[in-house]
């Protein structure tokens, strides 16, 4: 009798204990949200939705994208940074994470508060001119820039493509007049109308017009030549040490259990290999570039330093 009684007490205790033990390792439990700090329908949103689609087999309770927009991405990133560190919220981050704080408009966002999982996609700046421009090479443009004040269009003051133009001028020791537009496509429109000398937005954004013969890209600010544009030299090849581009990576808040971090990282790395994801990225002019967590962390640290210097040299820091 005593035996039975002790079993009656003991067994449930063990079961209860085991189930807590199992719980700690049973991530994912419950639905997971990917916070995208940019609006629905944009590039960041569609890449994240494609990733969510490719990754969903690993998340039986579902994984969905939620857009939290505003403040050039700072609102969504801040929301994700302050989320419960249990893996239920994954945040998409972009270079703005290490840019906005230096120009004083990042709110409370801090890259050190995130554990980087992986970068899946990148897009590099391209120095692009109208097809009938006199500049046939980057050299032509930079030589002319020494004596003339060239109009360089970008996607907004303090935006990544503004910094790309600024990075180019710094590397070549020249000075451009940076003309900010609201978004890349407005700058490209102005270039097509021949109101600007060049733009420094991403290659993906000018690719259609370059293919159509309306624009010409002189150089890309990428570490290697782009798969989509094998004939366009990199600035580094031409002797200007400047690599600037955007990227999309996924993170969780600091404090997330290591097992969860590993689970998420593995799931992302597996998902980006799937045919559907690869196909999607190809169709939407997005280049896949996988950077795993350790290198991702180094990249954040490096770019944080780089943008700090560049932004303060432009007089944009506040």
């Amino acid at each position: 009798m005593k035996n039975i009684l002790s079993k009656l007490i003991f067994v449930p205790l063990v079961v209860a204990g085991m189930s807590t033990f199992v719980n700690a390792n049973s991530y994912p439990e419950g639905p997971v949200k990917i916070i995208v700090p940019y609006s629905a329908g944009g590039g960041s949103d569609s890449v994240s939705r494609a990733l969510a689609e490719a990754i969903k087999t690993d998340f039986p309770d579902g994984i969905a994208v939620e857009n939290r927009t505003g403040g050039a991405g700072s609102i969504g990133m801040s929301y994700g940074m302050r989320a419960e560190p249990n893996g239920s919220i994954v945040t998409m981050v972009a270079p703005e994470l290490v840019m906005l704080p230096h120009s004083g408009n990042g709110g409370d966002i801090d890259y050190k508060q995130f554990i980087p999982l992986a970068i899946v996609n990148s897009g590099y700046a391209a120095i692009t001119v109208p097809a009938d421009s006199a500049y046939k090479s980057l050299e032509d443009l930079l030589v002319d820039a020494k004596s003339n004040n060239l109009l360089f269009g970008n996607s907004g003051t303090g935006s990544i493509w503004h910094l790309a133009g600024a990075g180019m001028q710094q590397a070549a020791s020249v000075e451009f007049t940076h003309v900010p537009y609201k978004g890349s496509s407005a700058a490209i429109t102005a270039l097509l109308g021949r109101h600007l000398d060049a733009v420094s937005v991403s290659y993906a954004e000018v690719a259609n017009q370059v293919d159509a013969g309306a624009l010409r890209t002189l150089a890309v600010l990428a570490p290697n030549r782009l798969v989509d544009a094998p004939n366009v030299p990199t600035a580094t090849e031409l002797g200007y040490d400047v690599v600037i581009g955007t990227w999309r990576g996924y993170t969780v808040p600091v404090g997330t259990p290591p097992a969860t971090v590993t689970y998420l990282t593995d799931a992302i790395l597996k998902a980006v290999e799937t045919d559907t994801f690869v196909e999607f990225m190809k169709n939407t002019n997005n280049d896949i570039e996988i950077i795993e967590s350790e290198e991702f962390a180094n990249k954040l640290k490096r770019e944080d330093e780089f943008y700090k210097g560049l932004i303060s040299s432009l007089g944009l820091s506040q």
């Binding site: 505003g70 403040g71 050039a72 609102i75 004083g104 408009n105 409370d108 003051t157 506040q318």
Partner: peptide, 23 residues
């Protein structure tokens, strides 16, 4: 919100929701 040309803050009172202006 943030001024388009110079990137400086206008009437944002350090409220992150106002950085990109009132939508």
């Amino acid at each position: 919100g943030i001024d388009d040309i110079t990137g400086s803050m206008r009437f944002t009172f350090n409220n992150m929701n106002l950085f990109s202006g009132i939508s």
